[in-house]
Design a protein around this nucleic acid. Structure first.
Lengths: 342, 342
DNA sequence: AACAACTACGAAAACGTTTTCGTGTTGAAA
DNA sequence: TTTCAACACGAAAACGTTTTCGTAGTTGTT
């Protein structure tokens, strides 16, 4: 086990000063050609690589960006990470991934860990608990300390930073409009509790589509689910008691649970009931019947977030501050859980 | 935007030396009680947090571990990350995630980036291309430089390091044995090309189970798939030409493609054909019919890997070197893609 | 011959810590 | 009064870089 080669060791070996070595390796014209070549040859031969930590300390930047997500075992978030990784790598950055587990405390802890020099900036999607609490002091603190922050997907209004979101309202609207287009008359909504912003927004889209088509909004056709755990049972009970011909679910799981329980109650999908989900994951694709969904383009979201962050990081500090919100449009992927258009 | 508080600033503010501040904050008895309290109060009030980079440079350890995986949009790997994150966090470590995209070059590049001080050690699952090439010099180099390395899942024999694997042979055997137990007589195998070690090993389990039960191995019942892209078409063609009553697929995708194509050919699953997959992902759980699979316990694998790595990192260097290979056992999750036992 | 201007390099500071080793004050023992 | 611990603190080195500045020695100009 040979210890890492450093400038100091090269200097000693070649009997020059540390500064000379550093300059030679960086092709400074200050150093004579002969010496420079000698040093570069030596460094190459022994495979010298500068120590990143020392560089970070010197430059006061780490060339790594931190991403904190609520959970990783979730197809959408992994595609986001994938997008972040891609552009980060292209720009010479590393990616530190942290999981908040949807816990406020873990989110705060993670931010504190990364804020002390480990990271140049953050990409973050808020934990469910954080949104519920409405406590965003940790975000504000990071910003105050000059750490750029990009919020994605689960964002919050009154924090001044870059944001990347999808148009949940329009996404929901598209889905419900499609259900109406194929002839559905009574459309149920399976959503989450309101403090999850995406649930609220998609619900808004649902309402808007109904209104625009002259349907009246019926509270009784809306199910709000709190706990993922027993969602299936709740959905079962909800659907058994109601005669609907269309279902819009705000995520994959709810959509699939809906299809399952409809099946078990002798309803045919899509012949009797059409179902649309949100988030185009592996599940939607491979499920039988293939699930019609609103697709979120997580990869795009990740890419945009990373681009936004790095842009801010590499900007000269004199340029003035302004914050962007990028809206990544949703698409509707038609599969077999919906009737075909007449 | 207030810049970060440092020891130096505290020292200046309180008119003591830097060393005094450092010692006071670390509760050194060298410092008088009065001074100590004053400094600690000040630090607390202004929320002083030591700079991680400086600490890393000083201590020559970063308290972060790097994990390099072939792809993140893959349920198994995300559960592994999740496990790594969990124990890493418990032990005060951060996790740097890198993606090799199954490319040899990216894998090497990633390792080089992380090896220069960013990371104390590696957790790695080999890229497909790497296994194909059989070039492991980058692993050996990392080890030579004193960076502990833990290989998981896709490992390689002749590298001396810790490893965490599942017992693929026994896993495959279990699956096929189960198919035999429920009365299957002609069992097909859908596998990958041989340089993917897991494919080879699971195939071995398939053979062993057959032999132990007095079946003869028939090369014609084995399909080896090279490209994920057109796997579905290949499987379709393969199954159309053969009359089987059992299928063992070495991953979820193949299993589900098999079920789909069987369906389309008028065969009932599980009534006519029983199907078992490998890797217990979201897909298996929510598919209809629920997929019977060999489960891999990715979370456990991640946890064990992280534990192994951190153990090595925190060991005093005098303790002698020895390498463990941990085998995480597989389970068989029975769902509805297989007939029930008589 | 005197002086300016290069050339080619080294010394040292800086980034933010921790830690070793002084060193100036005390107070008490001799 | 002298001596010596104990106490409380500071100076400086070290981790591995980059960069500013200084300075020998050489070359060129009158």
């Amino acid at each position: 086990m040979k210890p890492k080669l450093t400038l100091k060791k090269i200097a000693k070996e070649l009997d020059v000063s540390i500064s000379t070595v550093s300059k030679a390796l960086r092709d400074s014209p200050e150093i004579g050609e002969e010496t420079r070549e000698k040093i570069k040859a030596f460094a190459k031969h022994y495979n010298y690589k500068p120590n990143n930590i020392a560089l970070s300390l010197k430059n006061r930047k780490t060339k790594t960006i931190g991403i904190i997500i609520p959970e990783i075992v979730h197809h959408f978030f992994t595609t986001v990470i994938s997008g972040v990784e891609k552009v980060a790598n292209e720009m010479g950055y590393n990616v530190l991934v942290c999981l908040s587990d949807n816990s406020f405390d873990k989110e705060v802890l993670n931010m504190e860990m990364l804020a002390n020099g480990s990271t140049d900036g953050f990409i973050l999607s808020l934990a469910k608990e954080t949104m519920q609490k409405g406590d965003y002091h940790h975000l504000q603190e990071a910003i105050n300390q000059g750490m750029p922050l990009v919020l994605f997907d689960r964002v919050v209004e009154n924090i001044a930073c870059d944001k990347v979101i999808i148009d949940d309202v329009t996404g929901g609207k598209k889905a419900v409009q499609y259900l109406i287009d194929i002839g559905c008359k009574k459309i149920a909504l399976i959503s989450t509790v309101d403090y999850v912003s995406v649930g609220k927004l998609r619900t808004k889209g649902y309402k808007e589509a109904l209104e625009e088509n002259g349907f009246t909004f019926d509270e009784d056709l809306v199910l709000k689910i709190e706990e993922m755990e027993d969602s299936e049972a709740e959905i079962m009970e909800f659907l058994q008691k109601r005669e609907v011909d269309g279902v819009f679910a705000v995520n994959e799981h709810f959509a699939i649970s809906a299809i399952k329980t409809l099946h078990e109650n002798g309803k045919k999908v899509p012949d009797d009931v059409s179902v649309i989900g949100f988030t185009d994951g592996e599940l939607s694709k491979r499920f039988i019947p293939g699930l019609t969904t609103v697709s979120q383009h997580g990869m795009r979201i990740g890419e945009e977030s990373a681009r936004l962050l790095i842009e801010k990081l590499e900007r000269t500090p004199t340029e003035e501050d302004y914050y962007k919100t990028i809206i990544v449009e949703t698409g509707l992927v038609i599969r077999n859980s919906t009737k075909s258009k007449k």
